[in-house]
Write a protein that binds this DNA or RNA. Structure first.
Lengths: 208, 208
DNA sequence: GTCTATAGTATGATAGAC
DNA sequence: GTCTATCATACTATAGAC
C-alpha cells in the first residue's frame, strides 16, 4: 500500500523500519520495545506517542506487506484465461514487489504471532490469500495445465517459496527484484505444470 | 536420531511431545514453562528435574529433527552419480522422514530462536545442511542437469518447500508420508531441472 | 520425582514534567 | 514530542520439604 507519510523520514517511519529489522532478527516476541526505541534513538516510552502499543507496529507492517498481495491474488483467482498464466503473473508481481520493499518482513509471518487472537484480522487475510492461491491451483488442475497435485500441499509449497524469497531478500541486498522474482515464478510454475516446456510461452506473455 | 528412552511414555518424553506442540502454536518464546508443565500435568518447577532449562528441551527437539537430515545431505553432496538423482533421493527421504515424525517441529526453526548465541551449535548445523544443498545444486548446474539458477536463492527455495512440508504435516494428520514426500521431491526437481521430462527416470530409479 | 514458596529479572505500558 | 520515574505483571529458575 502506498503509505501517506508526510515525510518519509519521520520518527514514525523510522520506528517501522527499525522494528521490521529487529522483528526479523529476534522475532516479534524476542524484540523488546526498549530495543526498538534504542535503534531509533529515542527512549522507550516515546514510542507510545507514535503507536498505541507494540502490536500496532506489527499490524502496520502486516498491512504494508499483506494487503496488496491479497488483492492481487484474489484478482488473479477470478480473472479470465489460463490458470498457469495468471499464477505466473501473480507470483512474478508479488515476488518482485517483495524484493522492492524497504522493510525486512521476515519473522512477521511466524505462526506464533499470527495465532494471537488479537491479530485474527491479519490471520484471516493470510488465510484468504491462501484460499485464492488454492483456487488458482485447482483451476489449473481441472484445465489440465497442472499435474494432479494435492491442492493444500501445493498451496503450502507456493507459500513456502514466497517466504524463502522474503528471507533471501533480507539477507542479500542489491539483487535485481525482477530477476529474483522471475526465478521464483519459473521455479513454482515448473513445479506445478504438466508440460513445463510450454512455460516459455507464459514468460513471453507475462504482463507485470 | 533413534532416541534411547527407557520407556517411551516417560515424563521426559511427554515433555518433549507437549513442548513441540506448544512451540509450534505459540513459538518458543511465546511458550512458557508453565504452559508446558500444565500440558504434561505437573507443576512448573518439576520440569527442571528432567531438563536443565527451557532451552535444553528445544535443543533435544532440534537434535531429533536436524542431525539425521544434515548427515543425509552431506552424504548426498559427496556421493557419485547424477546430481539430480542424488537431490531427488535426498529430498524424498528427508520429507518422508519429516512426515513420519511424532513431533510437531514447526516453529523450531524460526530465525529468532536460532539467532540466540546460545544455540550457535544448531545454527551452524542448519547452515552446514544449507551448504550441502547448495553444493548439490551447483553440481547439477555444472553438469547441465539444472537450469543456471542463482544457487543461494535455489537453496533457499528448497528449504522453503521443506518448511512448508513441516507445517503441512503439523496441520494435516494422516497423510501418506511417502506420497507427500514424493510430491515435494517432484515439485523441487521440476523447478530446478532443465529437462523435467527426464524426471520420470529419477523417480523410477529412486532408492529410499 | 513432585511439590510450595519465592527470588531475581525483564517486559509493556502509564503519569506527568518540560 | 521527548523525557524520567515507576507500576504491574509475567517469566525462568532455585531452595528445600516431603
Amino acid at each position: 500500500m502506498p503509505r501517506t507519510h508526510k515525510t518519509t523520514n519521520s520518527t514514525r517511519h523510522r520506528i517501522l523500519t527499525e522494528a521490521a529489522l529487529l522483528f526479523r532478527r529476534h522475532g516479534y516476541r524476542g524484540t523488546s520495545t526498549r530495543q526498538i526505541a534504542e535503534a531509533v534513538g529515542i527512549k522507550q516510552p516515546s514510542l507510545f506517542h507514535h503507536f498505541a502499543n507494540k502490536q500496532a507496529i506489527l499490524e502496520e507492517l502486516m498491512a504494508i506487506s499483506l494487503e496488496e498481495s491479497l488483492a492481487g491474488a484474489q484478482r488473479a483467482a477470478i480473472a479470465e484465461g489460463s490458470a498457469a498464466q495468471r499464477l505466473y503473473d501473480y507470483v512474478l508481481w508479488d515476488l518482485t514487489t517483495l524484493h522492492r520493499l524497504p522493510f525486512a518482513l521476515s519473522g512477521i509471518y511466524a505462526h506464533d504471532v499470527l495465532e494471537d487472537p488479537a491479530l485474527a484480522t491479519w490471520s484471516a487475510k493470510l488465510e484468504a490469500l491462501y484460499a485464492a492461491l488454492r483456487s488458482l491451483i485447482e483451476q489449473g488442475i481441472r484445465s489440465g495445465e497442472f499435474r494432479p497435485v494435492n491442492p493444500d500441499l501445493a498451496q503450502a509449497m507456493v507459500a513456502g517459496v514466497t517466504f524463502s524469497h522474503i528471507d533471501y531478500s533480507a539477507e542479500h541486498a542489491g539483487g535485481d527484484p525482477v530477476e529474483l522474482g522471475s526465478e521464483g515464478a519459473v521455479f513454482i510454475l515448473s513445479g506445478l505444470m504438466r508440460d513445463p516446456a510450454s512455460l516459455e510461452r507464459l514468460v513471453a506473455a507475462a504482463r507485470l
